[in-house]
Simulated assay, not measured.
Amino acid sequence: MMFDLPDSQTCYDSFFARSPDMRGRLWVGVTSTGIFCRMGCPARQPKPENCSWHASVQSCVEAGFRPCKRCRPLEPEGADPLVTRLTRALEDDPARRWREADLLALGLDPSTVRRAFRRSLGISFLDLARMRRLQAGLGQLAGGARVIDAQLEAGFDSGSGFRAALTRLMGAPPDRWSHPDPLLRIDWISTDLGPMIAVADDHALHLLEFADRPALPKELERLRKAVKGRVALGRPAPIDQAAEEMRAYLAGRLTRFETPLVLHGTPFTRQVWEALRRIPAGETRSYSGLAQEIGRPEATRAVARANGANQIAVMIPCHRVLGADGSLTGYGGGLWRKERLIALERQMGASAG
């Protein structure tokens, strides 16, 4: 969310004094290097005349600054050494079953860890670790493993606990995702912004959502009912293509997706989604502006609803729509992801220019 910046001298003093009330609200662009930094960057302090002050990462990128490689301002807002330490530990051993006692053994306060992760990633560390273990279990099931073997791979002592966790994530128990003659297949895609669930047939992608999106279970259940239960775990070619394109996009090497898509929605909803796909990477629109573009200026609220109903994240770029005042507004994948996606695309656009 944008706010009015104080004068340059106040910004300079607050930023380099690491004022707590300005953390996450103030960034500096250094005109002599073309780099922008978050508060607390270990780089040498620039001279006041070389500082350009900004209230958001987006503003820095729009002004042509590149992210600092030392403080990494494109990482989730609020990231701190504690978050970095534990996410790296999770990457090193994703199957580990973390408990609060493990955090205490590391000399960490579980409530502090929980707050730090929710502030940075929108999810607690223990929930994130649990999701990674579920990913391992789903991978086993997709490969044809028995539920008991997938359960053990995921580090669940209880079969009922494993089934319940999968049901919460997928909207239905595992046996409903194992049709012998499926029309749709489901798999997990790992990305730098967190795990995503993908659904595709042999020719096109039907769904791509972040695994922690609250609406995901209902979206999956609607697809399952639409094909009368003919869904199974697996990885057809469109999911492979989507995974590769997401890796290239998040690495800043791709601005246009070519994965074939199936759009489930009313004619108006599909019209909005197609308009979203025409917004160039690095640009944004308001809801009212998007309504104008499709020739329905009176339909701003309907456009907002269609935007929120999008079930193919990133590839149908609903993150490129902002509030009329330039605020990030809502995003099913979390505002921290929306901010990073916009900043990434601004950076790619600046590099291309």
Rank of each mutant, 00 (worst) to 15 (best):
W273Q: 15
R270M: 08
S288R: 11
R301E: 15
L328K: 07
A237E: 13
N307S: 15
G334C: 01
L233V: 03
L223Q: 05
G295D: 05
P214D: 07
L223D: 00
N310K: 02
L250C: 04
L290A: 03
E244Q: 12
A211F: 13
E221N: 11
A237T: 11
R296I: 04
M315I: 15
T259H: 10
A211M: 02
K225C: 01
G323C: 04
E293S: 14
R213G: 00
G333N: 04
E219I: 01
T284L: 05
K228H: 13
T266W: 05
G234K: 04
L276E: 07
E274L: 15
G332Y: 02
K228N: 13
E283R: 14
Q271V: 01
A198M: 12
A248K: 10
T329C: 09
T259Y: 07
L276M: 06
G282R: 05
T284G: 05
P317L: 04
R285F: 10
A200V: 04
E209W: 07
R301G: 12
M315H: 02
F210P: 12
G308R: 09
L328A: 05
Q311T: 14
K228E: 11
G334M: 08
R270F: 11
A309K: 09
R305A: 05
N307R: 15
A299Q: 11
R235L: 13
I239E: 05
R278C: 09
R320D: 11
R247W: 02
A313G: 05
M246W: 09
A281G: 12
T284W: 09
R320S: 07
A313I: 01
A275L: 10
T269Y: 05
A251E: 09
N307Q: 11
G333R: 07
H206Y: 13
S286L: 04
G334D: 14
T255I: 10
F257T: 10
E258N: 15
T259W: 09
T300H: 03
A215S: 15
A275K: 12
E258M: 10
A309S: 13
S327W: 06
A198V: 05
L254S: 09
L223E: 01
I312H: 00
V303P: 01
L205S: 05
S288T: 13
R285D: 04
G333W: 08
R213D: 10
M315S: 03
D212W: 08
G289W: 07
R222S: 12
R278V: 03
A232H: 00
E219A: 06
G252E: 12
G295F: 14
L233I: 03
L328Q: 07
G282I: 00
G252T: 07
P267V: 14
I316G: 06
A309W: 11
R247L: 12
A226D: 00
D325G: 09
Q311S: 13
R253D: 14
N310H: 06
A204W: 02
G265Q: 06
P280A: 15
P238D: 00
T259S: 09
G308M: 12
L254M: 10
A204S: 00
A232I: 00
D212C: 06
